[in-house]
Amino acid sequence: MTGAARAEPVAVLDAVVKRFRGETALDGLSLRVEQGEAVALLGPNGAGKTTALSLLVGLRRPDAGVVRLFGRDPRDRAARARLGLTPQASGFPATLRVDEIVRLVARHFSDPEPAGALLGRFGLGALARRQTGGLSGGEQRRLALALAFVGRPTAVVLDEPTGFLDVEARRLAWAGLRDYVDAGGTLLLTSHHLDEVEALARRVVVLSAGRVVAEDHVPAIRARAGLARITLACDPGVVLPGVVRSEPSGSGIVLFAVDPAPVLQALVAGQHSLAGLEVGRARLEEAVIALTAADGDGGGPG
């Protein structure tokens, strides 16, 4: 391969289809991550995030479509030489020490970061000689995160990177990841946490049922994500002001609205039942999917 200066995209998925025993996990998914981007993949469980990542790192191959990592088939290990990944934090060989794990992983790369410096950066310096079986859940999580950076990667792929860290450790990890992106690194992550996505990603891609249903920069998503979620035990059966989407839930209904006040006023004015009323904030994915569906209706009533 030539050392052309032209920056190829880090990751490309083009019209990728993946089925498992008749179930369609990815249904024509297309996604592109350029060098230096920070992208978050969002979506409900079963939307295809994990499948998409497993294709991208070469664990599986698509039934149709094309997957490229640094312009190569990710199943070619040369494609993964500049990629950083985290293992599942629960699965370290229990009797190996933290520094032994780091050195083993470092062996895979041509110019690894020295173990001491890396562990220091992730607040693990004092634990270098500890066997991984004796680490706390948070410490294992930090080690898993650190391993993604051992090889000084051009891009890292992180699945729920800081979900189980305490607040302090999370802020530290976020700072480190932001430094990495600021220095030109490429970040692709999945997360369920709105705050994590806001802290780390510049672009958000929302998956649902194996397809991309929304794609936008974070400020735009943030503006759209401030939805209220109103649950009622009985469906009032009328169009209510300000509701951007509704979905049945058991015998009741869930309403999504930018502002819950007019919805509640209309319910009271119309003397509809308020049985089972709950008002809360929609989760990020719910909000994004609700808005996407509303957009797809061509901005109909309301």
Binding site: A7, E34, Q35, G36, A81, R82, S110, D111, R152, P153, T154, D182, A183, G184, G185, T186
Partner: peptide, 10 residues
């Protein structure tokens, strides 16, 4: 796009 420092060496 920020040039990635790693690209030069890798």
């Amino acid at each position: 796009q920020v040039a990635c420092p790693r690209r030069l060496t890798a």
